[in-house]
């Protein structure tokens, strides 16, 4: 069974007064197996972030369903959604979304504290993770004291410390310089190698080239998808770029 199944998801936004309608997602079907590293690419306004938010249970589909390990998220009560997110999903955002009132350490521990885990267990998880993400020396600093790359690594640590079934990343390299971005992608690749399932929305072909599969989305629909197979990252990168050319044939700017 697939880890994540997106079935016929449709999303229509209505303006507050009910007049204007905007269809962000028409009818999207997507499956992600356990251990897969999937990238979703598409031009601005194609609906990729909407799709991610629906998978993340931050937004609700107008029609269709999302299943995680066969469980429909529709059946989860609103009250239990946050606990569901905490247990099953990890998030990495473009603008980091770290809390400025917490130190790096506390930011990482936040989801575990919310689950009322024992402090010894929390720290047992934290230190090896911080070591592997090169965060140990900044654990007691505050978000405003560290660099963008460090902030994003902190966010990654926070996303994976709960050992989630699925890590969702929304433009994780969007706010980073190329060096930090490369480092972050290395970390994603490393996580993937260790069996972590990752779903990443990105603009960057370079970021997408580290994934095992790239799904292209346009105008609220899946357009095409390509799998890496045995290719190297750079060969896969070439293929992504040529695919993007096809995708932008209609004059759409891919950015």
């Amino acid at each position: 069974m697939e880890l994540l199944q997106v079935k016929n998801v449709k999303k229509v936004y209505r303006s507050r007064l009910g007049g204007q309608q905007f269809t962000a997602l028409k009818k999207v079907n997507l499956e992600v197996s356990a251990g897969e590293f999937t990238a979703i690419m598409g031009p601005s306004g194609s609906g990729k972030t909407t799709l991610l938010n629906i998978i993340a249970t931050l937004d609700k589909p107008t029609a269709g369903d999302v299943l995680l390990e066969g469980q429909s998220v529709k059946t989860i009560k609103d009250r239990e959604l946050s606990a569901f997110r905490r247990k099953n999903l990890g998030f990495v955002f473009q603008d980091f979304n770290l809390l400025d009132t917490f130190s790096v350490k506390d930011n990482i521990l936040l989801p575990l504290v919310l689950s009322d885990m024992e402090i010894r267990e929390m720290e047992a998880r934290l230190y090896p993770l911080a070591e592997s993400l090169e965060l140990t020396h900044i654990l007691n600093k505050f978000p405003y004291e560290i660099s963008g790359g460090e902030k994003q690594r902190t966010a990654v640590a926070r996303a994976v410390i709960t050992r989630p079934k699925l890590v969702l990343a929304d433009e994780p390299t969007g706010s980073l310089d190329s060096k930090s971005a490369a480092k972050l992608l290395d970390i994603f690749a490393e996580l993937h190698k260790n069996g972590q399932t990752i779903l990443m929305v990105t603009h960057s072909s370079l970021a997408a080239s580290r994934a095992s599969r790239v799904v292209f989305i346009r105008d609220g629909q899946l357009f095409s998808q390509i799998c890496r197979g045995e290719e190297s990252s750079s060969e896969f990168f070439e293929r992504i770029v040529s695919n993007l050319t096809v995708l932008s044939d209609g004059g759409v700017d891919i950015g």
Binding site: A83, L89, F93, N97, L114
Partner: peptide, 15 residues
């Protein structure tokens, strides 16, 4: 801002 981050990280809005 803080409120929305907390929600995304998995704290329910009542809490």
């Amino acid at each position: 801002g803080r409120f929305s981050i907390l929600q995304k990280v998995g704290m329910d809005d009542l809490a």
